[in-house]
Simulated scan of single mutants.
Amino acid sequence: MHKEKVLIIKLGYSETLDGEIGKITSLGDVLRSTVLLHLYKNAHVTWLVDEKAFPLLKGNPFIRRILSYDLSSVLQLQSERFDTVINLEKVPGLCAFSDSLNAWRRYGFRFDPENGVALAYDGSQHVLEICMDPEYKKKTRKFWEETLFEMVGAKWQGEGCILGYQTKSSTAFDIGFNYDVGKKWPNKAWPMEYWKELERLIGNKYTVSWQQGLKNIEEYFEWISSCNLFITNDSLGLHIAGALNKKIIALFGPTMASEIYVPNGIKLLPTIDYPCIPCLSPRCKQSTLCMHYIEPNVVYDMIEKVVTGSVSPA
């Protein structure tokens, strides 16, 4: 019996719903894209990815083959035939590569040979509009996963991303502080002095663990697994915690909270009335970053509500 042969091109060089193309691999965008695997559980799926994101896909039961992006894998894929190719990268060279492959159907982004830029296949044009027009993006108010499913002609029904790594850690800490946001969006970070103040407010009431595994992704998986309640900025850790079904308190400012699906989670936003929130930019124009307007006592009160069960994560 023939199994549908599917190729997903998602390296992390460009964020699927963001117009910017950078040199920093977006690990969170790669992990979130695994939600598509719910549609191809019975298919033969190959995933082309940047080697930095390889551990996020390793062990995934719905990926038959993971290929790191290099000349060898490019030449190999150009010699194969696929039923479906899904290109989630807007890098023009990757779009041209995707277009060169032998495939029956295509979704996502394609190459414009006249202008040398990325375009969209039928059904994905609105995704490019979301990428290129921040105001349009704010008005759509759809979950990221919902838009991704629309790109391939499917309807999202609350599915989450799939992490292949099987953690071994049992719960050891009441609360985990996921404070790091990486270099790409420094203004997503809740101020370090606020984390320290929150720790002071908690005192000895709950056990607290500060982020571990900053240099080893598997240690990071295990640390997240060891925390019962996860407090986090909008970052890779948020999506890993969601995949591990952790209770989450997520702190949002410059990015769109309405776009992020947080299963089993609560979202907290700044109380300041900046007209630019969310600015959708890694560079802030305000004298005081909006993340300074999520007070530690507000986060502490939410911890109490989640722990006592007076408010339940959605």
Rank of each mutant, 00 (worst) to 15 (best):
Y206K: 09
T308F: 02
I231G: 03
W156E: 07
I202C: 01
M302N: 06
E218W: 13
V127Q: 01
P313G: 10
V74C: 05
T288L: 14
G59T: 11
G116E: 05
M1W: 11
H2S: 13
D99Q: 06
G153V: 06
L251F: 05
L77R: 06
C227H: 01
S312K: 15
S124V: 10
Q286L: 13
Q76H: 11
R141T: 10
S79W: 04
E135K: 09
Q166L: 14
G160H: 05
N87H: 02
T84F: 02
L56D: 03
Y293P: 00
R141E: 15
G237A: 13
R64H: 14
S287C: 04
N216S: 09
I63Q: 04
Y220W: 14
V306G: 04
K267T: 04
F143S: 01
I202R: 00
V299P: 00
L56R: 00
K196G: 02
V30T: 07
F111I: 05
A314D: 12
A96R: 14
E146P: 04
A241T: 02
S258A: 14
G182A: 12
Y194T: 01
Y69M: 08
L94W: 10
Y179S: 10
L71G: 09
P296K: 00
V74I: 14
V298M: 12
V35P: 01
T232A: 07
T207Q: 06
E222L: 11
E295W: 08
N233A: 05
K41F: 03
E146K: 14
G158Q: 09
W223C: 01
L236C: 01
E51L: 11
L269A: 01
V152K: 09
L214H: 08
W185A: 09
G28Q: 04
E129V: 06
M192G: 04
F173V: 10
